[in-house]
Simulated scan of single mutants.
Amino acid sequence: MSISEGNDLDERGWNAVTEAVSRHYPETHEFHVAYMPGLHFGSPLQGCSALRGDDHWFYVTYGLTELWAKESDEPTTSGYGYELTMRVRALPEEDAPPQWPYRALSNLADYVRHGPQELWLGDRIRLPDLAAGEPGSTLTTLAVTMDPVVAAIDTPNGRVEFWQAIGLTDDEVEAAKASSTDDVLQGMAISNPLLITDPARG
């Protein structure tokens, strides 16, 4: 997951994210997407990696925290203080991850950078074309909660948390409005503790 070797970039932040994820997905082939033209030229993220779990694909972003040398004046927090994760149902015959989560996480990161307000845990962000390309999917919204597995880390650039995005249907969004996002996600976690998004379940 590291940037190509042989350059002179200080990759302290990038490598810290990689190490945190690798504790839970060791020796797993990485499918990495680089967003063009790149973080310093307007992309909301530098990249996103997908790794195969037993029954799901795990995605993690690179770019909402300080990936290289420390740049901000806030010593205790790296960038926005978190990277985004997502777990998506994997079919037994799949040998590569679905592409739509890369786009969905990039869109969510764009909201973080340019949205009308700050993103918080428990928020719900509507993306009508969330699972575009998945036949029959009724997922419309991403809810945000703390990743249930990948713990926060302290890096040379400051603290980094991992916030998981979970796909919701309109019915689940209405239920969250009547109670809370946490209530809906806690109910889902009874049978789905990793909060794996399944675009076909709607």
Rank of each mutant, 00 (worst) to 15 (best):
M1V: 10
I3M: 07
S4N: 13
G6L: 03
D8T: 15
L9W: 15
W14D: 11
Y25I: 06
E27W: 10
E30H: 15
Y35L: 11
Y35Q: 05
M36D: 10
P37C: 01
F41G: 00
S43N: 06
L45M: 13
Q46Y: 11
G47L: 09
S49G: 15
S49F: 05
L51C: 13
G53R: 09
D55R: 12
F58C: 09
G63W: 03
G63L: 08
E66Y: 02
K70N: 08
E71N: 04
E71C: 07
S72D: 12
S72T: 15
S72N: 04
D73F: 09
E74W: 03
T76Y: 02
S78V: 03
S78I: 01
G81C: 10
Y82M: 12
E83N: 09
E83W: 05
L84A: 07
V88C: 05
R89T: 14
R89I: 09
P92S: 12
E94L: 07
E94K: 02
E94N: 03
P98T: 07
P101W: 07
P101C: 11
Y102L: 12
Y102V: 06
L108G: 00
L108M: 03
Q117A: 09
G122S: 02
L127H: 04
A131L: 08
A132D: 13
P135A: 14
T141R: 00
V150E: 02
A152D: 13
I153N: 04
D154T: 13
N157C: 08
V160P: 00
E161I: 07
F162A: 11
W163Y: 11
A165W: 02
A165Q: 03
L168W: 02
D170K: 01
D170R: 06
V173Y: 02
A176Q: 02
S179C: 00
T181V: 01
D182R: 12
Q186P: 00
M188K: 11
A189V: 06
P193C: 13
T197E: 10
T197C: 14
T197F: 12
P199D: 13
P199M: 13
G202K: 01
